[in-house]
Amino acid sequence: MLKKLMLALPVVAMMSGTAFAADTYPERSIRFIIGFGAGGNADTVARLLAEPMSKDLGQPVVVESKPGAGGNVASDFVSKSDPDGYTIQLMVGGHAVSAALYNSQPFDPLADFTFLSTIGQFPFFVAAQAGAYENIEDLIAKAKAAPGTIKIGHSGVGSTQNLTGELLDLETGADFIHVPYKGGAAAATALLGGEVDVVIDTGTIMTPQQDAGKFDILAVSSKERWPDKPDVPTLAETVAPGFDVVSWTGVGMPAGVDSAIADKVRASVHAAIADPDVAARIEKLGAKPSPMSGEEMRTMVEQQIETWKKVVESAGIEKR
């Protein structure tokens, strides 16, 4: 009897501990883990959020970079951290991509995480040199007429941009050559120099070149037209019905976080992106602020993993 009581003691202590923790959370600083090096989009978004969240939660939210292996180093770290609410992660669309791309990950991309909310969503744009193609239908028709001749530059093998291009092959039946560059800027430079015919990347890369009359933006990857560029048709309405690729940044935690704590952090994220100043900066980075529930985010990630698995397989991209 006593033995059983003794065994039950830590369980009771733990339960009361968590209930207590949710009330007083946070009592110390919170680590905000990013999986990418300084200076990238992820880093910027994390720093944008850290400040208002620190004010809101009353404890410093400290951005900590654990770069490597396309964000997998950070995801591994977070998935194995204590689910006490003091480790949160800046997730990106790559979370779903790497789940499809890696043979074995030391963590489960869905079960090992508590999903809080996306921060912003952004589509990819298909662009060509100004005047090269009349419209997206023209590009796809020419690509089909001469398979294996038209070159798409992208920001690296296994990037979401790369897979979006491969998905375009899959959905339209066209056969493009996919040429990897180191980052979207390098791919855009190659398009400026005429080395590739098409580039698929974000609005921040494309818009200045479009404004200067160097690029024509032919289509957008999202299901609906993007509010920034209402004149740009979607791939779905033109050449690839059902085409819907939107990448994102979001916030997650290890699995098993007390739901009261998760709600508190989610509310803080939502408050931060509702702030007009922060929202304006997210928009400048080419994204649309997108508060979500944890369930919605989880479903989205799950669907994207399915899509990318299909693409990786059909495009014959070797798994890592």
């Binding site: 800027a185 404004d211 900066r281 400048k284 980075l285």
Partner: peptide, 21 residues
């Protein structure tokens, strides 16, 4: 390079999108 990407990032966040114009 990465340093220049950061500087472009700073411009974008300040509302200026650097490009040929």
């Amino acid at each position: 390079d990465a340093v220049m990407a950061l500087i472009i990032g700073a411009l974008i966040l300040n509302g200026i999108v650097p490009g040929p114009r």
